[in-house]
């Protein structure tokens, strides 16, 4: 997709049995980067066997419909293995995208990472 060298796009930590994934760059969720980010997220479920996941959007200022597609697929993957996905720290401008598309109903969205962790 892109000829640019891959930067570190995700910061992953384990808190108890929950995997917390933070996006490291405010612009990463555009079309140029979303393919590789999607693959990394899917791999956490398919290869690493993670079942409880929190995605922290604190640094994200932008997200396109391609990113929404990846999140939907990730959510389905986790549901298929009786896992669960929670999203948190979503900027109001980005939260509006979830509202417009009706995806607010599909995802478990929390204000803070702490709230998201406590939901498990």
């Amino acid at each position: 997709m892109s000829s640019q060298p891959r930067r570190r796009q995700l910061e992953i930590q384990e808190i108890g049995d929950v995997t917390v994934v933070a996006f490291t760059d405010r612009k990463i969720l555009d079309e140029q980067n979303i393919q590789s980010i999607g693959e990394q997220l899917y791999s956490l479920v398919d290869d690493a066997g993670r079942r409880k996941m929190v995605l922290n959007f604190a640094k994200v200022e932008y997200l396109s419909s391609a990113a929404l597609g990846k999140l939907i697929t990730l959510n389905k993957k986790l549901q298929a293995v009786k896992g669960r996905l929670a999203l948190c720290n979503i900027d109001p401008q980005i939260f509006e995208v979830f509202e417009i598309t009706g995806l607010k109903k599909v995802f478990n969205i929390y204000k803070t990472e702490q709230d998201a962790l406590q939901s498990f």
């Binding site: 396109s64 419909s65 929404l68 597609g69 990846k70 939907i72 697929t73 959510n75 389905k76 995208v97 417009i100 598309t101 009706g102 995806l103 109903k105 599909v106």
Partner: peptide, 21 residues
Amino acid sequence: DPTQEANLEKPSGRGLLLMRY
């Protein structure tokens, strides 16, 4: 319409909706 219940969890089809909004 991607906001219809049946289409809500399809991974694509939201571009036009966002452009129009």
